[in-house]
Design a protein around this nucleic acid. Sequence first.
DNA 1: TTAATACTATACAAAAAAGTAAAGATATTT
DNA 2: AAATATCTTTACTTTTTTGTATAGTATTAA
Lengths: 152, 152
Amino acid sequence: MKITALEEYGLRCMLLLADKGSGIPLTITEISTKEGLSIPYTGKLLMILKQAGLVKAVRGRKGGYSLTRPPEEMALREIFDALGEPFFGPHHCGRYTGDNDVCVHNEDCKVRDMWTTFERFIGSILGRVMLADLAVGEYDFARILEARSEPG
Amino acid sequence: MKITALEEYGLRCMLLLADKGSGIPLTITEISTKEGLSIPYTGKLLMILKQAGLVKAVRGRKGGYSLTRPPEEMALREIFDALGEPFFGPHHCGRYTGDNDVCVHNEDCKVRDMWTTFERFIGSILGRVMLADLAVGEYDFARILEARSEPG
DNA sequence: TTAATACTATACAAAAAAGTAAAGATATTT
DNA sequence: AAATATCTTTACTTTTTTGTATAGTATTAA
């Protein structure tokens, strides 16, 4: 039950871009310096985020990366989905089949049902907390859950 | 953001022991057969659970594993803590330091604060859902959160 | 048009997690 | 006491994840 490296570092990069504002893009070099990451690894991260449509790249001089949307409209859920599988995703049961081709509990599984509920619970939070909330330091989940409706 | 193999399989073994009742212990061989896992791997899992004090072992004939406490008193949280680190644990920041010895955001980190809140949120659920709830198919988290007080 | 700057893609190396193998120690039953 | 069934320990192999290296492509400003 762990946060992966891509998720952790990817979120940090997104936050950096959110803080910067959408004016001037940030280069890979700048991002890598500010986050203490290597340049190739930073490039890899940004590439993943770009392919998910969360950031856009401008080449050449004065180029760099910036967000495709204002951080107020970017849910943490989208960011994590871009950087890895969800907590309990569609591949879970096919992945943990033990020694068999298909899980022993395939027909009826209490653990699966529990994870499904759990995933939905977590998703309802991450879908409503926006990158802008993070930038401002707002993560009172209970209040956010109350104030905002389920995301579309 | 993923569930580890140890957590998934370990939880299944615990559920199996909970269903069995605390009378006759289950052997590694029985557990491995019922869960579709190899015998050595099952042994490894049970050893971890034993060292955490969640199960006890009896050697020799008629031996095997059983729960140390009734499943009504065993929170999912304890089980996951035994099988791996918590979602956002004390080692997180020391682990994701990029190329430096200490994380660039060590002084003031919005991501860290967010994870802390998030971890507490998840913990408040997992601390109140018991293994017995799972066995019965009860995982209406909202209701459980409402009905039960914060665990000690 | 040229050189500098920046992103893109592919292949590879290192570290961590997952899973296996085999020999050893302990308890119970006969 | 001996045989058997069980847990226990250590070391090893495989797979996945992380992170690196390098060569290539595109854009812009002078």
